[in-house]
Structure formats: structure tokens, C-alpha cells
């Protein structure tokens, strides 16, 4: 299948890549850009493991075509930590509060939580549970994920003061 050229900004860097029109953004991120932190759990928009932020909007990248990234910004899990290796507050709290077990859903949860905290910096437990209900975790039972997001929200709010 003939490939097309796509220009996008991925994690702050302008990139140009070839992609088949039938390839999903998830495939492009993983197989073309080799950013394998974004995971495939279901490939039909039901688990959130492939969550990325596309032009400021949280998406399941398996349900977006790669060509749709043309002219847009894409944020993946690889873009969260600072360039000097400093972890994002969400990465810090997931780690410190045992918010992960196997780790496969973790990048999607962290990206999803980042989008949530950007729109609601101080969410209640219910708002976190609602906001993250597009993400499946089979290991943790969600307790520690909810607590990690709550704590990261506090850290981010305090950092802004």
C-alpha cells in the first residue's frame, strides 16, 4: 500500500514519517517511531493502554489513523519525564505509592491522568474514578492508582503556587 508523508510534533520534536493510510496512530508510534511505551491492549478503544494526547485531547491512539496526526502535536509517555531524567509528578507518585503491578497499563493511566489533571487539577476520588474509567487495570484494583493521581494533583497544584 502506498505510503504518505506525515509531519507532526511528537513530544516536542518535529518529526516526519511515512505511513500507510490504514495504519493507526498506535502502530505508527510503536512500529515507525519506535516509541514502545504506548501499549496495545485491545486495539478497539476499550482499555486505554494506548492513550496519548493529540493536540491537547486524550485519545485512544488505536482508534486514530496515523495520517490524522498531520500538523498536530502528540504527547506520549516518553515525553513526560524531564530531559534531565526528572520524573513527572504522576510518575513519581505511581512509583512511590505502589500504583502499578505488572506495568502494562501504567503508561496509559499516567497519560490519561495527566489529561485529567490538566482539566481538573484537584479532582475528588469520584472524579478520578470517572476520569480514569476508560483505562483498564487488571492487577491493582485501582486503589493505589486513584491515590497516586490524587497525590500528584496536590503536588502539581502546590508547584504552581
Amino acid at each position: 500500500m502506498a505510503k504518505v508523508i506525515v509531519n507532526a510534533v511528537v513530544n516536542g520534536e518535529p518529526v516526519e514519517f511515512f505511513c500507510e493510510p490504514r495504519q493507526s496512530l498506535l502502530e505508527v508510534i510503536r512500529d515507525v517511531l519506535l516509541l514502545t511505551g504506548t501499549k496495545e491492549g485491545c486495539n478497539d478503544g476499550n482499555c486505554g493502554a494506548c492513550n496519548v494526547i493529540l493536540d491537547g485531547v486524550l485519545v485512544d491512539s488505536c482508534c486514530v489513523l496515523g495520517v490524522e496526526a498531520q500538523g498536530k502535536t502528540v504527547e506520549t509517555i516518553e515525553g513526560l519525564a524531564g530531559t534531565d531524567g526528572d520524573l513527572h509528578p504522576l510518575q513519581r507518585t505511581f512509583l512511590d505509592l505502589t500504583g502499578l503491578q505488572c506495568g502494562i497499563c501504567t503508561p496509559g493511566f499516567i497519560v490519561s491522568a495527566k489529561a485529567l489533571l490538566e482539566s481538573n487539577p484537584n479532582p475528588s476520588e469520584h472524579e478520578i474514578r470517572l476520569g480514569l474509567s476508560g483505562n483498564l487495570c487488571r492487577c491493582t484494583g485501582y486503589d493505589k492508582i486513584v491515590l497516586a493521581v490524587q497525590e500528584a494533583g496536590k503536588m502539581l497544584t502546590e508547584a504552581k503556587r
Binding site: D31, L35, G37, I77, L87, Q91, F94, L95, L100
Partner: peptide, 23 residues
């Protein structure tokens, strides 16, 4: 003690290599 898990940073940053990540 709640020590920091050694594989933790890789798993919160997307660096951890799962089977489908092998190219």
C-alpha cells in the same frame, strides 16, 4: 519495608520492554 521496586522507573516511563516491544 516499602522499598522502591527496581523495575519501577522503567515501568512509569515506558522504557520497560514487554514482548511486543521487541523489534
Amino acid at each position: 519495608k516499602d522499598v522502591l521496586r527496581p523495575d519501577g522507573v522503567d515501568k512509569v516511563t515506558g522504557r520497560a520492554v514487554f514482548a511486543d516491544d521487541v523489534h
